[in-house]
Simulated assay, not measured.
Amino acid sequence: MITRTAVITGAAGGLGQATARRLLADGFDIVAVTRDAPSAESTRQALAAVAPGRAVHVLHADLVDRDAVRALATQLRATVGHVDVLVNNAGAAFAGYAETADGIERTHALNHLAPFHLTHLLLADGLFTADARIITISSDLVTRGRLDASAPDVTGTSWRDRFSQLTVYGTAKLANLLATTALADRLPPGMNAYSANPGVIRTGFHTKAGGLLKVVSSVSGIMAQTPDKAARTPVMLATAGIPPTPNGGYFTKGAAATPPKIVRDAGLAAAVYERTAHALGLDVRPAAI
């Protein structure tokens, strides 16, 4: 029997590491992706300690860097023979405007373009199994997202002179949610893509973000869940015996949920998908007929 393999980005702590621990307990081998070498080593030790006998691989990549995403895909090809589950969890809400070396606003680079890029590189490499599940972590803040339906900005550079931390983060997550719905129609039969909203989590994410998000977290913290509890939605999507429906759906609290109205705009979803592919220099995958 071939052991299932799950790749989880942003696995140094919080939701990502909690998801890794639970998938290890469910019999998966794990590839945990962290930002840098020190966090990779501490993550390897933490995960190996709770799962003796299971394969735990740890790689590191700063996913705001497009070249680092490409290098990560190459490392994954050399490290594992197949990927059954990809959990695109890495994310951050930066407090101020800055662009990457590729000319992408940082929040959009990490939260939207990086998971889109990594997913499509693995698809192109044929690394996904025939029934693979691609799970991208969403957020309550998608309701703060703002996209021009006639020309959606998927790179975030239009926020240069009007930056708002919560709105820019929400917009990056909204673009990601729309792209996931469009991706589901473009996957080979048997593969599934999902968006998973874990809700408010008791981690250092909001505090490290600084800015207004740190203030908001101090107010909402009383309702925050532990990472282990928040992990139930991505873990359910990864482990359910029958693939959850709908493909391309939005899930929270362990079940399918109705996404914001804007996400149900198929034309906008297709536009966001195509613009993102073009921004990354990727081929646009055709939608199923």
Rank of each mutant, 00 (worst) to 15 (best):
T226F: 11
A196N: 09
A224L: 09
Y273G: 12
A209D: 13
T207N: 06
G241Y: 14
V263K: 01
T226C: 04
G249I: 10
A193F: 10
L268H: 05
P246C: 13
I222V: 15
I262R: 01
A224Q: 06
K229E: 07
P234N: 07
I201M: 04
A269H: 12
G211F: 15
A230K: 00
R264W: 06
H206G: 14
L213N: 03
V216L: 15
A224K: 04
A209K: 11
A255G: 10
L212H: 11
A266L: 14
A240H: 07
G254N: 01
A209M: 13
K214D: 14
L213A: 08
T207K: 08
L268R: 01
T239S: 09
L237T: 02
T258A: 08
V200Y: 11
T252E: 11
T245R: 05
A266K: 11
F205M: 12
N247D: 10
L237M: 06
G249H: 08
T239Y: 09
A257W: 05
K208Q: 15
T203I: 01
P234D: 08
T252Q: 09
V219D: 02
V216E: 08
D228I: 04
T258P: 04
G254C: 04
A230H: 02
I201N: 00
S220M: 11
E274Y: 12
P198C: 03
A269I: 12
G199I: 02
K214M: 13
P234R: 07
V216M: 14
P234Y: 13
M191Q: 15
Y273L: 15
A209I: 15
A257I: 02
A240F: 05
G241E: 13
A209P: 05
T226S: 14
A196D: 07
G254D: 04
M223Q: 10
M223R: 11
K253P: 00
P259S: 06
G241C: 10
S218M: 12
D265F: 06
A255T: 14
P259L: 05
A196Q: 11
R264S: 10
A230M: 02
I201Q: 00
I201S: 01
T239E: 06
A231Q: 02
A209G: 14
G210V: 13
T207A: 10
P259N: 05
G249P: 06
V200L: 13
P243E: 00
N192C: 07
L213S: 04
A196R: 07
R202N: 15
